[in-house]
Design a protein around this nucleic acid. Structure first.
Lengths: 341, 341
DNA sequence: CAGGTTCATCGAACCGGTTCAACATCTCAA
DNA sequence: TTGAGATGTTGAACCGGTTCGATGAACCTG
């Protein structure tokens, strides 16, 4: 392969001159600069990434640590990844993807070997065991998801509290007084998915302060089962007129369940979910929902990370904890309850 | 960060000795080897990836070029990625993921800068414009998907011809004589998705040789629309008793469509699809299907690629074109046609 | 016209590994 | 006792970039 020495020789200059001509970090005469650029182009010169990383201790690669969990919905995960890769490319970075089940181990290896300039962590749990490793690493880190302790990293997440309130307020404003909230299964909470509580607690409080009844339940994340659970739930609470879904499997199953019960939204039941627009499109879900915008969160994380890498914010600058405010996408699945139109 | 010089000094040996002690590439006395290993452990030494790549011209990174197409179903794409990352990790490689819409450009940059030891290409089109770039690169390449010209690369794909035949034969054996095949939309074919033809042509031939009627149609890939198209199709061919689906959107929409028509499979219509088991699980699809096993294809591609990288097969060894034979997963959605049980 | 600036270029050192050739020591056979 | 061979260790070179300090030429200024 052609290296910078070949380019220099072809242009009749020193190696250092060729480097300066290509990087523009020192004044070079127009004539020499053109000669070098022409030589580089004609020889098809591309700098060797390893050598450049060694010399500059910058790799222009961002590490992306995801965990592919079997009960996590693929469309959302792919959207995170897409947001991250797209904005990384826009900023001139490549993505090193790891899905190693041993998160801390993979993270330590990647950071210690200096393969990356920064790290993005997906599926962050409340007590994420990758966080101590990330804090000890010399590279900056950005998280998607809210851990208990945010020191030393930039954090981005949907505002789940506000999401819970918005869902309740929306149905309350229409006149509903008996609501059901279907959350994620308990094992999601156990592995650190605190966002389930964040939404649920805020919803419960919002309902209480308005004198509404709110039944909360943890639904399954497996497909045939959640359907049966929804049937049982609707049987148990015939008086409920509003259904809140913070559980993708439940949202995917609900159209069939309603069909089987010869019910429809919003005529018999007002429904509002919490999932991404992409998810809704994939499953052609007809329910209004809080848009969780995974790609936007991925973009935000990368943008802030790049700012830190390129020292546009000082290393001592306070770290960011930013919550994306929820946006209710109205798909017409909510209306005043029966007998109140 | 601690480098091999620090380790050598702590162990009281030369840099080269430390290197040999850690790599085991030369005989080193037990005593010195232990001293070096202990020093490395105590100092927390991790080799610098850039320096090692520069010295060995090996990066232990595999480039993964995917294209996130808006009408491609996320679960399948994620499964490819998962198969690739998992088997790469097992072989001791990391993954550099690119989703650049400019495939040839990104590929050339990654290979020329020597960031990777090999390349895996996903969503390979019949005349894929990344292929000339890949053939010109010094690194070996493995494809998932069948291009027109397979020279210089290893190729892995589902056997779509056999899949078409299996679907037809399965329904024929049950006694069906009037079939419908719903394929992917035409724009998928136009951008190089030759697999659509491969399945369809084989199905047509299999039907013809058995004296069966097979109506073929290209369905949409968008969600509300494909449902209406299925209705129209079933209206137009009331005599058809068997439905073949090579279109994920159609498979996802069919349960609702059948429900709306007060029909069910296999009582009124025998249905067999072609999609991955993961896809079926995500959508809880009740139809028997040809398992397309994207993770298995990703694994096979990486394994062969690693063999080439590590010279376990010579560079002159003939390249592989391997078709995974289809496997029919019986979910009970096919039966003899009405009046023939 | 001496002396100080500015500009363009160059040589050498450095980043952190790996690897080759050389060398010292020890063993064993002749 | 000499010499060949095996064993363990070392210094130096190299991979391909970047960057620092030095140098020489051209230009100004007084």
């Amino acid at each position: 392969m052609v290296n910078i020495g070949d380019v220099a020789r072809a242009a009749g200059v020193a190696r250092s001159t060729a480097s300066y001509a290509l990087s523009g970090k020192r004044a070079i005469s127009d004539e020499v600069r053109d000669r070098v650029h022409r030589a580089a182009r004609e020889l098809g010169y591309t700098p060797n990434a390893g050598a450049r990383a060694l010399a500059t201790s910058q790799t222009r690669v961002i590490g992306l640590l995801a965990q592919f969990l079997p009960d996590e919905f693929a469309p959302a995960m792919l959207q995170y990844i897409q947001g991250v890769t797209d904005s990384a490319r826009d900023a001139g970075y490549d993505i090193l993807l790891s899905s190693d089940p041993d998160g801390p181990g993979a993270l330590g290896r990647i950071t210690d070997s200096r393969m990356v300039d920064g790290i993005v962590l997906l599926n962050v749990a409340a007590d994420d065991d990758r966080l101590p490793v990330l804090r000890a690493a010399p590279q900056p880190g950005a998280l998607v998801g809210l851990p208990r302790d945010c020191t030393g990293v930039d954090v981005f997440d949907l505002d789940f509290e506000e999401s819970g309130r918005v869902m309740v307020e929306h149905l309350h404003a229409l006149g509903h007084r008996e609501l059901i909230l279907v959350s994620q299964p308990e094992h999601v909470i156990e592995r650190g998915g605190a966002y389930v509580w964040r939404l649920q607690d805020a919803a419960v409080e919002a309902a209480a302060s308005r004198g509404l009844t709110l039944h909360t339940v943890h639904g399954s994340s497996e497909q045939p089962r959640i359907g049966r659970e929804l049937h049982a739930l609707l049987d148990a609470h015939p008086e409920a007129t509003g259904l809140l879904l913070n559980n993708e499997a439940a949202a995917a199953a609900l159209p069939t369940v309603l069909h089987e019960r010869h019910r429809s939204a919003p005529a018999d039941l007002s429904v509002v979910g919490r999932y991404s627009d992409e998810f809704a499109r994939t499953f052609s879900l007809p329910f209004s929902s809080i848009e969780s915008a995974p790609d936007r969160l991925g973009r935000m994380a990368v943008r802030q990370l790049v700012r830190r890498i390129e020292k546009q914010v000082s290393a001592e600058a306070p770290h960011v904890v930013r919550f994306v405010s929820p946006e209710l996408v109205d798909r017409g699945s909510t209306a005043p309850p029966l007998g109140q139109q």
